[in-house]
Design a binder for these strands. Structure first.
Lengths: 224, 224
DNA sequence: GCCCGACAGCTTCCATACAAGGCGGGCAAT
DNA sequence: ATTGCCCGCCTTGTATGGAAGCTGTCGGGC
């Protein structure tokens, strides 16, 4: 397996990155919280050096704000940044769905329907975490079908802003509705109708706008 | 000025980042070249630490590949990565131009025409470097007019892959033709015709495809 | 009461030393 | 001649001490 050959060992800095990112997305570390290299180093029982490198990585991903010689704070969520992140995502996903619907491969529709079936199972079991994972897989699969899986990876990097908002609205979002919209998309792909697919995708992504405004008024301190 | 208030001082690591990135984009450091923290540190007369942090940043931007305990190499250009980077750019820029042409502000067309005039001046003076800058400014201005300047900043991060290719083709690209295409775009904006604007933008971005294939056969060692 | 400067305590930044692992050449055994 | 191991040299990773700089506080002068 490639994984064995690559042999990219687990370094301490990477572990710290993962741990911190998880803490931030799950709001265990709240926007505005100030952290210091020494703090985190002591908490994880490691030296300051790997923590520092983790800070740099997370800062580049827009989750931390390093103020030189001053402090490092968990970046507050920028409403405008979230909107533009969604603008980017919508731009790319619309282009993706057009391609997929425009040049459908044999099994594209089939793959999507099986994914939707899994989502219905997760929804019925009330397993929202699994549903979230499957939802993400649905969109990533579309990217793969369009031959631009790397593009999805880019979305993923700048999607963490959205993920923090999503975490705040956990349970609010209706899985039933999302599934229905996924079906609309899959149906347009099956019919090889790019225009309909684009409409369905835009409708699917548009729902988030309302959630954002609601969230801002619910947690004003987390936004700038 | 915000710059003065922010007072973000120039740190050594930042200088190293800028210097290395410039070296990589201008092919002073060629794809496949192996560099080491000690090397660069000695070359710039600094310690290994800031160099190491610069490596991390550049690795996250896809310009370097850090192989733990082995070496750090200038990443070779991935043809598929370039294509997908362009896919991303096209997706976003098409969405941008649609918005600009769909809801044109009073002075949008005016701003664009003055920019094009500057480009003609640079082209006449045979100042290709200045033309490149103005070309980039043209596209960034469109993003600003659409209210998503941050989105352009994101493109900028993942555009360095394209920039390396562009540098290899310096002088090949026809400024005259680019200007004509810019005029088409500006005209569609003036007429508030989103469909025409989209067509013009796609045509404008499509030209690069040919250049890429040509470049790959000219410099096979730089691609993976 | 108000202003302003010295200072203590914090932060991130940089330098240096050491640790851990990959890689290749030389050497010995077969 | 070939194979396999060992060891020095290289790399990146981690630890730690000190340097540079920001911030708030406390106290003295007005």
């Amino acid at each position: 397996m490639a994984a064995l050959l690559e042999h990219t060992q687990e370094t301490i800095a990477m572990r710290v990155v993962d741990a911190l990112r998880d803490d931030i997305i799950t709001m265990s570390l709240k926007p505005g919280d100030v952290i210091s290299e020494s703090d985190i180093a002591a908490r994880y029982g490691v030296s300051r050096q790997p923590v520092r490198e983790a800070f740099i990585r997370l800062a580049q991903q827009g989750l931390l704000l390093i103020r030189p010689k001053r402090a490092t704070v968990v970046k507050k969520i920028s409403p405008d940044g979230v909107r533009q992140s969604r603008f980017i995502r919508e731009s790319i996903e619309v282009e993706i769905i057009r391609r997929v619907a425009g040049q459908p491969t044999d099994n594209a529709a089939e793959v999507l329907t099986t994914l939707i079936a899994d989502q219905e199972a997760a929804s019925a079991a009330n397993d929202s975490r699994r549903f979230h994972t499957l939802d993400e897989l649905f969109h990533r699969t579309l990217a793969r079908l369009a031959g631009v899986e790397y593009a999805w990876q880019l979305i993923d990097d700048h999607k963490m802003q959205l993920d923090r908002v999503r975490y705040l609205t956990l349970g609010v979002s209706s899985t039933q509705r999302a599934i229905a919209e996924h079906k609309d998309i899959a149906q347009a792909v099956a019919k090889a109708d790019p225009a309909a697919a684009e409409r369905a995708m835009r409708a699917h992504l548009a729902r988030a706008e309302l959630l954002l405004n609601q969230t801002i008024s619910d947690f004003p301190d987390f936004f700038e």
